[in-house]
Amino acid sequence: MDYATLLQILDSTLRLGTPLLLACLAGLFSERSGIFDIGLEGKMLMAAMCSGAVAALSGSVWIGLLAGIAGSMMFAVVHGLASITFRGNQLISGVALNFVASGITVLVAQDLFHQGGRTPALTGNARFNAIDLPFAESLRGVPVLGPFYAEVVSGHSALVYVALLAVPVTWWLLYRTRFGLRLRAVGENPASVDTAGVSVVRLRYAAVGIAGLLCGLAGAYMATGLQAGFGREMTAGRGYIALAALIFAKWRPWQALYATMLFGFLQALALRPDVIENIFGFAVPIPLLDALPYILTVVVLAGFVGKAIPPRAGGEPYVKER
């Protein structure tokens, strides 16, 4: 494989890894607060439809983005009601919301556009267009790093950079602020927060809300950045891959970046069977590449490579004990 091909693949890695990264960080906030979120997929899908549809109607990707966030938030609120207020089963709530999203997105898109559940192809300002970072062209001549900067780093849509920026911001929020301290505490031992006089319910709603916001960005990127418009089931299990990445990253932000980029890389590779055959000398089955994120996650979950310990209070509704 030559350098140019590698750069191409890394470029796709970043594009494909971005929605995974945003969703993974969404899951990170939610699960760190003790609320399991299987519904990343549904929230992303909802956001993709809302943003795609509104961007198509309004012609503005920014209004579309807001609509995407709103759609995702709506689902986040329902999940919060079910799992925080009514102390229901968080796993079942997530599964249910994924189905609702899967159906309702097609219903609405079909009603609006009559194109078989798709939104029209987005063009111009209705899409996030590539941003060329400063000096991308002029630095291209610098050996090795120049093309890397120009090909891989530069030339993505704004949300890609937002996602990358979200990693240090998440890290900072989590480990450097009062909110982060309380968030981490409430996912580990809500009683510690409660006895300290801080509201468990409010913290958890905040976390679920942030998850809604980030899933909104992820979904909007799918429909208005990665692709030009919404298509039915367009998230194609990315919410679950993000969940896998979250476990793989052991619920930590920087590791979430690495894990999602690894999984994004696998997705990018799966698109280039020719390259794989070149490297390995034989055809690695594409399904194996597709399954690899899940297989790796199971291996991690089973404790064969370190131990993935989820937040201790995860999945348990908090009931004040006597």
Partner: peptide
């Protein structure tokens, strides 16, 4: 410091 923080930042 949990619950008795001075301000928004931890440091």
């Amino acid at each position: 410091i949990l619950g008795a923080e001075e301000g928004r930042l931890l440091a």
